[in-house]
Design a protein around this nucleic acid. Structure first.
Lengths: 215, 215
DNA sequence: ACGTAATAACTGACCAGTCAGTCATATTAT
DNA sequence: ATAATATGACTGACTGGTCAGTTATTACGT
């Protein structure tokens, strides 16, 4: 059987357990963000979550699994809220591109998920599984959408036909770069995310735009 | 004998010492790149440099200073070779932009300095001094040049007048992003750096280009 | 009462940094 | 020249602290 009529009452204990799992995930994100994976102490995660160290090991088998579990717990819910994959033919490629980039800016760059981005970059090479998970579940999905939009735009004449490789990467590069910048150099030179987003779109859409067929 | 006949012979010892310092810096870059700062063992750096652990401490006071010293030693020589800051009025802004980006792609992205880029992103928050050094000596210099070029382009009519903030960051974002990508996800989805560079320039220059004054 | 959740004291591996001693090169005396 | 002495580079065994993971015990919900 399944969801339907069985889990029913999440019985005090199960509620507490779930709450504690969330607290641990939040604490893990906070601590890992602050000092990186290697320097993070399980004791600190435990303290931040308001439990003892042993408890952490009731929920996660190891430090590595805590890290991976945290990333998954933080990213998966967001993926389900991403703008739909279906192509609405009434919507221009330009509008769809705006919509997707906006989603990324607000839901990732302007939230604590931005920290995860940096952690993946930092620790990815040491966590092949995690990098692959992130690539397969987060990046490649996003890429597929952006690619589809660019394709649509080229086909319907909104965008010029740029044949070069790496077009999609170039289109979203501005978003990745500003995410990194804010994590590392923002205190030396703050960037206003909204203004940057406007410039990003402006620059990219003009770069993509097909020349007016006016002559 | 030496160039001017003064300090004269770098005396066998000094030569060896300098050679060893270089070996240590190279070894440090290799090891830190491989596993990150925290997981790097001084013993491994020593072994890779062909010396014993104690020797490392004759050249650097601590693991932190080894790291910072390595970054500085690797970046400083390059800075002196960057394209000149003087504005050649005979050169279009477009050409100058191409020249500078090309320099970055070949001298940073396509060399072991790319590793340093990732290390700065990963460890920067834990090494405020280092992040500041990198910002002050590498980034802000590059930014100043790109900004000057954009300004020139706007003034002489090559580029349209985009008022938005973060324009410069957006212009170079593609380069930062691909550097990160190659470090972390290239094994899942390789990017050809030359093709990507062509697309980057194409997209950006079209995005910047002032509309033809043809009407 | 029973079983599950949580604790905190404990262990053992690990590693940055030290230091007493060795070895190679340089300097001075004969 | 050669030997005696001094210098400074180098070594590697050792230490002290840290921290991931374990376990024996206690608290709590049902």
């Amino acid at each position: 059987m399944s969801e339907v009529a069985e889990v029913a009452s999440p019985s005090r204990r199960e509620q507490q357990k779930e709450a504690k799992r969330l607290a641990l995930v939040d604490a893990a994100l906070a601590v890992f963000s602050r000092v990186g994976f290697a320097a993070a102490k399980i004791d600190d995660v435990a303290e931040e979550a308001g439990v003892s160290k042993g408890t952490v090991y009731l929920y996660f088998d190891s430090k590595e699994q805590l890290f991976e579990g945290m990333v998954k717990a933080k990213m998966l819910p967001m993926l389900n809220n991403a703008p739909g994959l279906v192509i609405d033919p009434d919507q221009s490629a330009t509008d769809r591109l705006k919509q997707h980039l906006r989603f990324f800016y607000t839901k990732v760059l302007d939230s604590d998920r931005r920290q995860i981005m940096r952690l993946i970059m930092s620790e990815g090479p040491n966590f092949p599984d995690l990098a692959e998970f992130y690539y397969a579940n987060v990046l490649s999905r996003g890429q597929a959408m952006i690619n589809a939009i660019i394709q649509q735009g080229i086909e319907n004449g909104e965008f010029r036909n740029m044949s070069g490789h790496g077009l999609m990467h170039n289109v979203v590069a501005g978003a990745l770069a500003v995410g990194m910048w804010k994590q590392v150099f923002d205190r030396f030179q703050p960037i206003d995310l909204d203004a940057y987003y406007d410039t990003h779109l402006d620059l990219i859409l003009n770069g993509l735009r097909a020349p007016d067929p006016q002559d």
